[in-house]
């Protein structure tokens, strides 16, 4: 599902390149009266052109020349599962949006426990290990490296943390 194939991949890169060229051209012109002859869009536009050329080459030239070897070499033996990656995605998103509210230790414990159980660990062991790991990581970063990890729900006990 995530493997697009060279033709579609090349076209996608070319489209990205065209969008970049368009956006670069929207950026302001170089200031007149200064010795700066190249505006902020000059370099990105060049890169956009490079992306279009590379994308089109990949889509048109490359498959006809190297398709046979590619297909033999990259024959997908298995289609990737999506459940695990989606779980990881949700874990990080929940950290981004909820860590301030819930706090590092409770949220990291929950995240770790869910992922550990997804990996086949039993409930009590997963919770114990998650709690231990979260507290250790908290101590290391918050106390050792002075990173202000959010306390969230544990704020009332802040003096103890």
């Amino acid at each position: 599902m995530t493997n697009l194939g060279d033709r579609r991949l090349g076209l996608l890169v070319a489209v990205v390149g065209i969008v970049i060229i368009y956006m670069s051209l929207q950026l302001p012109e170089p200031m007149s009266g200064t010795h700066i002859a190249y505006g902020p869009g000059f370099f990105p536009a060049l890169l956009g052109v490079a992306a279009v050329v590379a994308g089109v080459t990949l889509a048109i030239v490359q498959p006809s020349a190297e398709q046979n070897e590619d297909e033999d070499a990259a024959a997908p033996a298995e289609t990737p599962r999506l459940g695990g990656p989606v779980l990881v995605l949700l874990a990080v998103l929940s950290y981004i949006y909820l860590s301030d509210l819930i706090g590092f230790i409770p949220l990291a414990t929950a995240t770790l426990a869910i992922l550990l159980m997804f990996g086949g660990m039993r409930f009590p062991k997963a919770i114990a290990l998650s709690l231990l790991a979260s507290i250790l990581i908290y101590l290391m970063f918050s106390k050792g490296l002075l990173v202000p990890l959010p306390r969230g729900l544990l704020q009332p006990w802040a003096l103890w943390l």
């Binding site: 992922l115 550990l116 990890l149």
Partner: peptide, 17 residues
Amino acid sequence: PILMPIILVFCMVGSFA
């Protein structure tokens, strides 16, 4: 399966740090 979730938490805290 045990290491990966812990690495994930490290990644989140590491990028935050």
